[in-house]
Every structure is written in C-alpha cells, then in structure tokens.
C-alpha cells in the first residue's frame, strides 16, 4: 500500500508531528493520558463483561449497568482516541512498518465489530434475560471476546515501543 505509506511519511513531516517529537515532554505526557484513557475505557467495559459472565453486580439488570457505564466509556474513548491519534501523528512513519502497531489496528477493528454484533443480535432481547445471573451463551461469548481483545490491544500497544527501538 504505497499510497498509505506516502500519507504516513507526509504526516511525519508536518509541523505537529515534528513538534511532538522534538519536545522532551509532549510524547510521554500524551502517552500517560492515553494510558489513563485506556483504564477508563477498558475498566468500564470489563465491568459490563463481568456482569454478563455473572461475576459481579448480579442483582442489577444488565441493561441498567450498560446505560450507566456507557457515558464514561465514551468519555474515556474520546481521550484515548485523540491522544492515540496524536501519538500516531508523531510516529506515523515508523508506525506504518511496525508489526505490533499493525496488529493493534486490526484488533481495534475487531473490538469495534464485537459490540456491533452484540447490540444487533442478542442484546435486542435483553428484556428477556436482563436479570439472569447467567446470561445467554452468545452474550457470554461476546463478553469473553471483548475481554480477550482488549487485553491483546493493551499488550500490542505496549509492544509498539519495544518493536520501534
């Protein structure tokens, strides 16, 4: 994909990219905020996943937990996304050929498809299993996939820096 590579190389030469790279504080500061954003996103998602698996908050209806958590998941996602894009802008050229980065992008795509399928299928009938301690198998499968995918995203995200050096 030379077109994509050219775009990445061009972004690498922009003022924003070089200024993040050249400042001794920008990159680590953005990186820390990115990590804390991940904690908010993955932590809130994990709580819903653990409820779907019947491990916590068993007395609380699933849909109520989902509704209460969602605003904070999105808030964390906004932080994670903006800081993530900034980190990528700073390293776009090296990220392009970094296998950990490429894997992480594929995993992010999958972790986005997962709730899409979940909401379009089994969650439509949530009123029939809202209070169930043990939720339907497909809901539990979605929960396990989500936990595994997010854990892999964190691992590959950290690997990006190890592969770069």
């Amino acid at each position: 994909m030379p077109a994509l590579q050219h775009i990445c190389e061009w972004i690498y030469t922009t003022h924003l990219s070089t200024s993040i790279r050249q400042s001794p504080y920008s990159f680590p500061a953005i990186e820390t905020i990115h990590t804390l954003g991940i904690a908010a996103v993955v932590g809130t998602i994990a709580i819903l996943d653990l409820r779907l698996l019947g491990l916590i908050m068993k007395k609380e209806p699933v849909s109520r937990i989902a509704r209460q958590l969602l605003p904070w998941t999105w808030a964390g996602f906004a932080v994670m996304f903006v800081t993530g894009v900034l980190l990528w802008i700073a390293e776009s050229q090296t990220s392009y050929s970094n296998w950990a980065f490429r894997t992480k992008m594929v995993l992010l795509l999958l972790v986005g498809i997962n709730p899409l399928i979940f909401h379009l299928t089994i969650y439509r009938e949530v009123n029939t299993w809202d209070l169930a301690n043990v939720t339907p198998r497909r809901a539990r499968f979605a929960a396990v996939s989500s936990l595994v995918l997010w854990a892999s995203i964190i691992v590959f995200g950290r690997l990006i820096a190890y592969v770069n050096t």
Binding site: T35, A39, G43, A46, I47, M57, Q68, I154
Partner: peptide, 27 residues
Amino acid sequence: HLLALAIFGGSIILVDLRFLNLGFKTQ
C-alpha cells in the same frame, strides 16, 4: 502491570464517581 491497571483504574474511577453522584446512580 498495565493489564491490571486497566481493571483497577476503571473500577477506582467508578467507585469515586459514585461517591460524587456522577455515575452508577441506579445503585
């Protein structure tokens, strides 16, 4: 350490937000 942070950080934030009446208000 980072994987534990994701679970720990998220749940800490929610516990504190609940004390501040900013989230999880149904419980």
